[in-house]
Design a protein around this nucleic acid. Structure first.
Length: 503
RNA sequence: GUCUUGUUAGCUCAGCCGGUAGAGCAUUUCCCUUUUAAGGAAGUGGCCGUUGGUUCGAAUCCAACACAGGACACCA
């Protein structure tokens, strides 16, 4: 039996006793005409009235009992619904002696009840509902965690998010904000004539990013498919087809480690804008942040952990190379040659792989000395081409990609660039990735001939960008763990009986 | 994947110089008609994560495993 705990058994018996009294513990005939919030707002005036009550009013509020205090022939309870929590008062007189006795035995914390009555203010000044009728809406079989400490076990909070929501109302706020962020972004792009599209989740070739994919299997076709690691190559096919501004907000899947900022499935928005440049993307991104802060009613300086992110000024822009010097404090002469960089890294006690290209060494330096210092919104622009396989080269410098990343709170939050639309160049870059793969680099990008063929028909000059919704939500809700902004984060399954390995 | 810390009642935790398990809340019974973690009285409730080892004896010491938190690695 799944509910074999003694407390659950007691509660099942109480549900049965309610049935015997003609009260269905799982009824559906429940209607409410007021939320706890509306009730408190509408009857605020009762506090200032002579009698501290208004018996002419009548409302029905439905919610879960979070606190219950019986005092002989009367009781107080707190009933919580989606909007808040309201104190109710009922007594032997108000709901009848027989039913009061039954309620005392059979209704408890965790149950969902419907109460109808009038507003009044208690001796201690709390606006409450004076119950005239009380009905059980749903009998809760499993007891709630303790009322004072609540549920603090992080593992339980993630595994039983519903319980986390019941016990920690702030959690619901975080996910409401997340929802608001998504809808704000969606409207932001729709208003600017971007078309929202949905592209495949199951890819024959996992492309658009360097990451290990999940593999799944199509039985009818007898072939493996990859859960997508990025929608990029499909969205650009659509631009070839004639959609000049498209976006997709959806899940990506990467078969990699999990930590504070990585969940195997995560949400990104990617958008592609024909006849625009990466400078236009940066403008658009900054505008989007302004709209987000406004919609979420956030101040220009938002706290994040023990730091503060300042949105009050125009986002800073600095080239990748300059950031190494100015922010990373690396001597300008060091970054000119591989040898100097390797020597510099060694002098700092860092391990450095001598086979790395200059661009990859820049990346090492950037990750070590620059990234964590980028607290306020900063665009890093003009990336080394060899760490930007899908981005267009600068006309006046083929070693530099027309690309930017946006950083804040020491983290990368968005990545955008002018799209490579020369099909021959793209083919060759895939080919060299393929060589790298054959040489043992399992992160190298796959050859996607169909995508190259699409480019063959002509991708208009296009700029495209990706932005992680989960990490954005972390920043805007001041959460340190990605698991606190994902309703059901990935968890390992529990095997209770700890089966022996077959050896 | 590596290192590290944790796992004891429904929940939050104590016990860890090895001697056979404790508190608060919840729950059960009783008292209490304006309480705010309500109060008073008396009870019930434990495969001490799992499996093995050391020992006369293990929640406690050791090992492996499972799950979780943190750090690192991988990774945008």
């Amino acid at each position: 039996m799944i509910f074999d705990n003694q407390y659950e058994q007691q509660r099942i018996e109480k549900a049965e006793a309610l049935r015997e009294l003609g009260k269905n513990p799982y009824t559906h005939n429940i209607k409410k005409d007021s939320t706890t919030e509306e009730f408190k707002r509408c009857y605020e005036y009762v506090k200032d009235s002579e009698t501290k009550r208004d018996e002419n009013k009548k409302n029905t509020v439905v919610g879960r009992i979070k606190f219950l205090r019986h005092m002989g022939k009367a009781a107080f309870a707190k009933v919580e619904d989606e909007k808040g929590i309201l104190q109710i008062y009922f007594s032997r007189e108000s709901i009848g002696e027989e039913w009061f006795k039954a309620v005392k035995k059979l209704v408890e914390v965790g149950d969902i009840i419907s109460v109808t009555g009038f507003p009044f203010v208690t001796k201690t000044g709390e606006l409450s509902l004076h119950v005239k009728t009380l009905d059980i809406a749903t009998k809760s079989i499993t007891p709630l965690p303790e009322k004072f400490h609540g549920l603090t076990d992080i593992e339980q909070r993630y595994r039983k998010r519903y319980l986390d929501m019941i016990m920690n109302p702030k959690v619901k706020e975080t996910f409401k904000i997340r929802s608001k962020i998504v809808s704000t972004i969606r409207h932001f792009f729709e208003e600017r004539s971007f078309l929202e599209v949905e592209t495949p989740m199951m890819h024959p070739i996992a492309g658009g990013a360097n990451a290990k994919p999940f593999v799944t299997h199509h039985n009818a076709l007898g072939i493996d498919r990859y859960l997508r690691i990025a929608p990029e190559l499909y969205l650009k096919r659509l631009v070839v087809g004639g959609f000049e501004a498209v976006f997709e907000i959806n899940r990506n899947f990467r078969n990699e480690g999990m930590d504070l900022t990585h969940n195997p499935e995560f949400t990104m928005i990617e958008f592609y804008w024909a006849y625009h440049t990466y400078h236009d993307l940066m403008e658009l991104t900054e505008e989007m942040f302004n709209v987000l802060l406004k919609q979420l009613k956030l101040p220009a300086k938002i706290p994040y952990g023990d730091i503060e992110i300042d949105f009050s000024e125009k986002f800073k822009k600095i080239t990748y190379k300059d950031s190494l010097i100015e922010i990373g404090n690396i001597p300008a002469e060091v970054i000119e040659t591989k040898e100097e960089i390797l020597a510099y890294l060694k002098s700092k006690g860092e391990e450095a792989n001598e086979k790395l290209s200059l661009g990859k060494l820049y990346e090492e330096l950037f990750d070590l000395y620059v990234e964590e210092k980028l607290i306020n919104p900063t665009f890093i622009i003009d990336y080394p081409i060899d760490i930007s396989p899908l981005a267009r080269r600068k006309d006046d410098n083929p070693d530099i990609a027309e690309r930017f990343e946006l950083f804040m709170a020491g983290r990368e939050i968005a990545n955008g660039f002018n799209e490579l639309n020369d099909p021959i160049d793209q083919y060759n870059r895939f080919a060299s990735q393929l060589d790298a793969k054959n040489a043992g680099d399992d992160e190298a990008h796959e050859m996607d001939e169909d995508y190259v063929k699409a480019l063959g028909y002509g991708l208009p000059p296009t700029a495209g960008q990706g932005l992680g919704i989960d990490r954005l939500t972390m920043l805007l809700t001041n959460e340190q763990s990605i698991r606190d902004v994902i309703l059901f984060p990935s968890m390992k399954p529990i095997n209770d009986n700890n089966e022996k390995e077959d050896n």
